[in-house]
Amino acid sequence: MTEREDVLVQIEDLRAYFYTDDGIVRAVDGVHLEIKAGKILGIIGETGCGKTVLALSLMRLIPPPGRIIHGNIFYYRENGKKIDLAELPPKGIIMREIRGKHISMIFQEPMVSLNPVYTIGEQIIENIVTHQKMAWKDAKMLAIRMLEQVGIPEPAKRIDDYPHQLSGGMRQRAMIAMALVCNPKLLIADEPTTALDVTVQAQVLELLKDLQQKMGMAVIIITHNLGVVAEIADYVGVMYLGRIMEHTSVCDLFSNPLHPYTQALLKSMPCLTAQAGCRRKLEIIKGDIPDPYAKIEGCLFASRCSHFQDACREDPPLIEVESGHQVRCWLYK
């Protein structure tokens, strides 16, 4: 129990598949992950790697035809008891309580996830009233305080605005206020800054970091942008085709990437650290991300990997190279 103390959520061999007419999509295919209380976990991966589905399975919000077919998601409550979220009925009373109050989520495009016919105030207050026994008036006070905390100017006035009256950055702030108003233990941010401009992205990231330190919740930040991860995360999981390929602290990831996929990803990104003037060719990962319907035998990255060897025909396990640095690659056996 002692070493488990700082673990908030433990995911064990989670598999979430989508059963479509065209075949099975293995969106999440055997993920092991520990989410530590009060830390920021970054999940990076390209389109279709299953990072969003992973987040949705924590919330038990996977849309049909997808469902969790295997694995556990242990959530450690304050009283030390653990519950398996994967077992709970998604629409049951416990899950509803956990969603919003214990785990909440913000999405990439705030305009889509805010209801356009209600003011942002009404939406935040509704969220408070659903989860806490509180009068509408008190809830409104709380909502205004929350909006102030996320840096919305004149919150008492803005609370009566409709989502379309706010700019993209402000909307994302409102979303964050809504997600945090019940003091969740875990905040999942799915590409929170992808739709925003660089200068606004910097503001929002700064805000997330600030709030995390103030409120002490755990954060999962899902992104395809390595820069964002480097800015904000404490530790990182690199996801490819539904699996975590590498899992380590953020400093390790950038100074000592081990998995060939991570290495290639880092090298393929144009970054400002390059020597000025001399244009270096970007290293590329050959080929495309495989067809999501295909079942791949052996290592998932083998077809694009430059270190391919015979062992790769078999699926590598997650290997602990050093303490806290795990890699799913035969090179480190």
Partner: peptide, 13 residues
């Protein structure tokens, strides 16, 4: 200047 400083750096150090 502001634009440049806002770029997330792919280097946590």
């Amino acid at each position: 200047e502001a634009l440049l400083s806002a770029i997330p750096q792919a280097d946590p150090q």
